[in-house]
Design a binder for these strands. Structure first.
Lengths: 197, 197
DNA sequence: TTATATATTGAATATATATTCAATGAATTA
DNA sequence: TAATTCATTGAATATATATTCAATATATAA
């Protein structure tokens, strides 16, 4: 038997999780409140009992993502390459077990790019931008030969945009995950590492 | 002095080009007819004089893309790697001069992925899918050491999803293009080529 | 020049969908 | 048990936006 508080918390989590999946797969505007309600098996009216608006629900997800995807900042690593490979390994391993981690990553990327999203929410997503930070790591690492030659910012941009493209596609291609046809970490690392012996 | 026919043709082209840019930057649903009308500097009513619906306008763009992005199929190449590098070179060079080539590429990619798009239009976009075709080329090329080891389909998927991610981001980041911070072809080729001496 | 066809507009309409709300039932508390 | 608070619903409302249309201006044709 669940108490009312627990019940409420579970409901909220259910909505959050269904909404996340839908937002990622259909985008913010194409995800209708009705879609979420149906996915969570409840009336539209009830949705508004738990979240005051579609926008606020979306904002809550973005805030979760803002915390979650900040993780790598705190990771410590032996050499700068493992900063990147470690993050990718995590993402790929979660892709199978806990797709919501992957979904959150994709959600953030979409929010940063899409202009159809309420400005103040987009700001939050833009605050978490791996490109800038990684450019610094790449620049430093280039001196020791960890990374290939080239504009550090452009390298960082290429790497993260690629990761984003792959994750976005994976999010709507469950069969790739089931079949075990996930890209390998090294393939992507080679974008920034370049050709080594 | 322009004749009416020419005038009409120019108007259509203007609408097409503004719509393409907006669809790519904001997505199908977030692009309002009013946005296109404003961008093309005409009334909403006039839009409907030239295109019978937003959907039909979008479909026309997708059909253009279906022809355009088929191009590499006809390219002949000395070794299988130039099949990919040639396509990338083209895309990057057009990114500066004729962004609409890049836009068309992105539009197709988005249409393939997004479920918010009318089904019959999405079908058209799905008909042009580089992943399948490239997987065959990669598989064949692997035997001669042109490509790295690994599931050919997964390699193709990784490559094209990366390209897509980069182009999509470039489409909304004009400053990257202006600053000349475009990724280099080799960086992306190394996803499938791997580490060579 | 006159008549006809096309271009253009702004206002009207239709529709989808977010949001509100009054009513009802179920759980909690006194 | 009685009173009160919370959960839930379906119907009503508000709003945004695609689409239609009648009216007007401008170009072409006779």
């Amino acid at each position: 038997m669940t108490t009312r508080e627990e019940q409420k918390e579970q409901r909220r989590k259910l909505i959050i999780s269904k909404a996340l999946e839908l937002f990622v797969k259909k985008g913010y505007s194409d995800t209708k409140i009705g879609d979420i309600a149906k996915a969570a098996d409840m009336s539209i009216g009830l949705m508004f009992h738990y979240f005051e608006s579609k926008e606020q629900l979306y904002e809550e997800l973005i805030k979760m993502g803002a915390e979650g995807t900040n993780a790598p900042k705190e990771m410590n690593f032996e050499n700068p390459l493992t900063y990147f490979s470690g993050f990718l390994d995590m993402l790929f391993s979660y892709a199978k077990e806990q797709p919501w981690v992957l979904y959150l990553f994709v959600l953030m990327a979409q929010a940063r790019r899409s202009t159809g999203i309420p400005a103040h929410i987009r700001e939050i997503a833009l605050g978490v931008n791996q490109v800038e930070q990684s450019a610094g790591i790449i620049e430093a690492g280039q001196q020791y030969g960890y990374f290939r030659e080239g504009d550090p910012y452009a390298l960082s941009f290429a790497f993260w945009s690629s990761v984003q493209g792959i994750m976005e596609q994976l999010a709507v291609s469950p069969e790739m995950i089931e079949k075990g046809q996930l890209p390998e970490t090294d393939w992507l690392i080679d974008i920034i590492r370049g050709t080594k012996a």
